[in-house]
Design a protein around this nucleic acid. Structure first.
Length: 809
DNA sequence: AGCACGCCGACT
DNA sequence: GTCGGCGTGCTC
């Protein structure tokens, strides 16, 4: 038997299977989807088995060294999916495969050093070297890297030692798995034998008899500490029984349960509204018989989409199939998880970034072993290794975070379609503001469209008032709060109602500028201004992490009039306190939510009424549901509008709608105040009227006229290098070749400097292909990209390819 | 990507 | 005469 293996070499020309013989001893374990370690040239690497074969064309095959898991971590479906991802996103198959497994299973390589007998006997004339050998002797095998760190001369001593046969170095292929085990005690003999033993034990062994009688009554394994506590016996007593052969001690693998000790209130089933029932019936049509059934629910905020998800999920489980629910990382709140845990209990695995790597691994294994029926998580949960998937839900389908911004640059929406087709499953997208792509597909009849335009309990949509900030300025109001916002805040403070203040920080962060000469503090390594962080009085680059302390004098002209500008949440907080003395502000941003659990804590505080205002950025825009909030202020509604991105209007509309949805979800009527310099813009006007349909019509017209998605597809190529003339030359060469192979009707734009022209001292140039939705162009382009790898090796120019980019930076 | 092999300059 | 620079090419 031969295994075709994709090895862990992250370049394109080795991204093909290599054949290895499977030794008889490993035969039962090597399957498609197995992780193996294999010899590769002089090295030892991890790889994935993608195929098993009876024959090979290779003359001198080597053998698989080891299988790393008893159960293969990947299914055949995943292996096939990786092949598709590789072709679609122009990434290596290895990168695709690796993205499907939890981080702890990603390979780690370590060189281990140990001594031969000659090394043990070796005595060096040098004291330091002698100590070095002693060090290894005491700890062997010891990590190569650790030695290099500790002994400055280690590198040369190691080479000497290897040559002289005193030292052996072994390459270890491993992972980061730490299996947590618990010790359990269990009966080692039959129940009858236990009863006999209990009688036969001498009277003096009263404690031992107690233990035995426990096992007679509960003939099962029990956690050791629990047993000792329960019967108040000592370890000695138990040990005596083990020595006599009646009991047995066993190490059992234990799952870390991140929700241990928490109970979940069962979720009451409310009767469905007519709309909910209609949608449920419609989607159910796609479940019987099982078929690929793509659906889009366009449901206004508060229309009760979640109840629909729960019901469809329940029906899927009743069919004996499994379900995945994807939510944006940011709305993966305990509140939300509780609703699903409350309904489906321990049939749910939850994967989110707040879990430790080990916890994530445990949740993943529950899925892999079929111990749960539902997986909930952010983007990467789309790879939940279910075998009989019946339903995939993408909540907030339009969210940008479903696109991975590193290789492999996949979109969870696309992967959901692939998996839905494979499993003949229902794929359900839900949003109050569907992406142009999805709604367009729905209009063309490719996706079943369901509309929910009524809020549960018929709550009215909040009243939205647009405030023209230019007007305010003309009237001499230079603050960041308009007159009507100030009045509204005062009103809510008097009524003791709560408020949410939203500041969209993208492209609007605090920067430091000199008022005398106009100098703006920028990053010396990136073409971007530094962001001021008040908490530690530093300037930081958001791209490379470069940090410097706050300047007191302008480095250009020496003036003292250098200070921070712009509107960060910190500044808004200060201004709020200044305008409204005594106001209690709970601020949520990267600075205040860094610690684990801080995020939840702040929201809990707000819910308990410990704050009047919840102030924050994107992270407060979604899913939060506070009964006492009656005012939402959007301080700069148009700050997303002027970004160099064809999705700017769409994003603005989505954001305003999301934020507005935070107000008046319960008994009290909600109000939204939108401050903007762009009152006329259709995205702002239509968002204020909750009019998605008209927005769609207007925006799709723009996309059509300017030929942007969904009327075409995009591929973004970004070149980076320290040397501008070189990069320009190579980018133009590449563009020339591209132009030759793209079909008529496709366009090539650029190359031009990227919007952020330099990051970490590397200059960035980009070009973009716009093509009709014809996937046949991809293989040709991928060939060109592969060929560019030669160029990268020679010149060091890096090329990244982003298929269906979400960000144009 | 590594790592070895291989063919030309500055040292013992 | 050897150590070592990094160009080239291969890895089942």
């Amino acid at each position: 038997m031969y295994a075709r293996v994709i090895v862990d070499v992250p370049v394109v020309d080795t991204d093909r299977p290599f054949d290895y013989a499977v030794p008889a001893a490993l035969l039962p374990f090597v399957r498609v989807g197995s992780r193996v370690s294999v010899p590769f040239g002089p090295r030892k690497l991890q790889g994935f088995v993608i195929e098993l074969a009876e024959q090979t064309d290779v003359d001198r095959v080597k053998a698989v060294l080891d299988v790393m898991d008893i159960e293969p971590p990947l299914t055949e479906e995943m292996v096939e999916l990786a092949r598709k991802m590789s072709a679609r996103y122009m990434c290596t198959q290895y990168a695709a495969l690796q993205s499907m497994i939890p981080a702890v299973l990603r390979s780690s390589y370590e060189k281990q050093v140990s001594l031969t007998s000659a090394g043990m006997a070796f005595e060096s004339g040098l004291m330091d070297e002698q100590a070095f050998y002693q060090h290894i002797k005491n700890r062997q095998p010891i990590a190569w890297d650790a030695l290099i760190k500790q002994f400055p001369m280690a590198a040369s001593w190691l080479t000497d030692g290897m040559k002289a046969g005193r030292i052996i170095v072994e390459q270890i292929v491993g992972d980061r798995v730490t299996k947590k085990t618990v010790t359990v005690i269990e009966p080692a003999v039959s129940l009858e034998q236990l009863e006999m033993a209990k009688v036969e034990l001498p009277k003096s062994a009263a404690r031992q008899k107690e233990v035995l009688s426990h096992f007679v009554h509960h003939y099962a394994a029990i956690d050791q500490p629990q047993l000792l506590a329960l019967l108040r016996v000592s370890n000695q007593t138990v040990k005596a029984l083990i020595d006599k052969g009646f009991l047995r001690r066993e190490e059992v693998e234990n799952y870390r349960d991140p929700f241990a000790g928490r109970t979940f209130a069962p979720v009451e089933k409310h009767p469905f509204t007519t709309q909910q029932q209609t949608v449920i019936n419609g989607i159910s049509e796609g479940m019987n018989p099982p078929q690929y059934y793509p659906c889009l629910i366009h449901g206004v905020t508060g229309s009760g989409k979640t109840e629909v998800y729960l019901e469809i999920m329940e029906r899927t489980i009743e069919q004996g199939r499994e379900a995945i629910l994807l939510v944006p990382e940011i709305s993966l709140t305990p509140q939300m998880v509780n609703r699903f845990k409350g309904r489906f209990g321990d049939q749910v695995a939850v994967m989110h970034s707040r879990l430790s790597q080990g916890e994530r691994y445990d949740e993943w294994r529950k899925i892999r072993r079929g111990q749960v029926k539902v997986a909930i998580g952010a983007r990467s949960a789309i790879f939940a290794p279910f075998r009989n998937l019946g339903l995939i839900i993408l909540d907030e389908e339009h969210e940008g975070s479903y696109k991975q911004e590193e290789t492999p640059r996949y979109h969870a929406r696309t992967i959901a379609q692939y998996r839905g087709l494979y499993h003949q499953a229902v794929v359900l997208f839900g949003s109050a503001t569907p992406s142009m792509e999805s709604y367009h597909e729905a209009q063309r009849g490719r996706i079943h469209l369901f509309t929910m335009d009524e809020r549960v309990n018929n709550r009215p949509m909040p009243v939205v008032n647009i405030v023209d900030m230019r007007e305010e300025l003309r009237e001499g109001n230079r603050t960041m709060f308009s007159k009507s916002l100030v009045e509204a805040i005062e009103d809510r403070l008097a009524k003791q109602e709560q408020m949410v203040m939203f500041l969209n920080r993208r492209g609007f962060s605090t920067f430091v500028m000199c008022r005398s000469c106009g100098y703006v503090a920028g990053c010396p390594h990136c073409d971007i201004s530094l962001t001021y962080h008040r908490s530690n009085r530093t300037l930081r680059c958001h791209y490379c992490g470069y940090t410097e302390s706050e300047p007191t004098l302008c480095p250009e002209c020496g003036s003292e009039h250098i200070r921070f500008f712009g509107t960060g949440t910190q500044k808004v907080e200060e201004e709020l306190s200044r305008h409204f003395p005594g106001i209690r502000v709970i601020r949520m941003d990267v600075d205040t939510t860094g610690r684990k659990g801080a995020h939840e804590k702040l929201l809990q505080d707000f819910r308990e009424g410990k704050g009047d205002v919840l102030l924050g950025t994107q992270m407060i825009a979604k899913g939060l549901d506070f009964p006492n909030v009656t005012l939402v202020g959007v301080l700069a509604a148009d700050s997303t509008l002027n970004l160099p991105d064809f999705r700017a209007a769409e994003r603005t509309f989505q954001l305003i709608t999301q934020v507005g949805g935070r107000a008046g979800r319960h008994e009290k009527q909600g109000e939204v105040i939108l401050q903007t310099y762009n009152t006329e813009h259709y995205s702002i006007q239509l968002a204020s009227r909750h009019d998605y349909s008209t927005f769609f019509v207007e925006e799709i017209k723009q996309r059509y006229e300017k030929n942007y998605p969904p009327y075409c597809r995009l591929i973004l190529f970004t070149f980076t290098h320290e040397n501008v003339p070189l990069i320009v030359k190579k980018a133009e060469q590449f563009a020339g070749k591209l132009r030759q192979i793209i079909p008529s009707g496709a366009f090539l734009l650029g190359p031009v400097a990227s919007p952020i022209a330099r990051i970490k001292d590397r200059y960035r140039f980009q070009c973009m292909v716009k093509y009709k939705n014809d996937p046949r162009v991809l293989p040709d382009i991928y060939r060109l990209v592969r060929a560019f790898d030669d160029e990268r090796k020679k010149t060091g120019i890096m090329l990244t390819v982003d298929v269906d980019p979400q960000m144009m930076m």
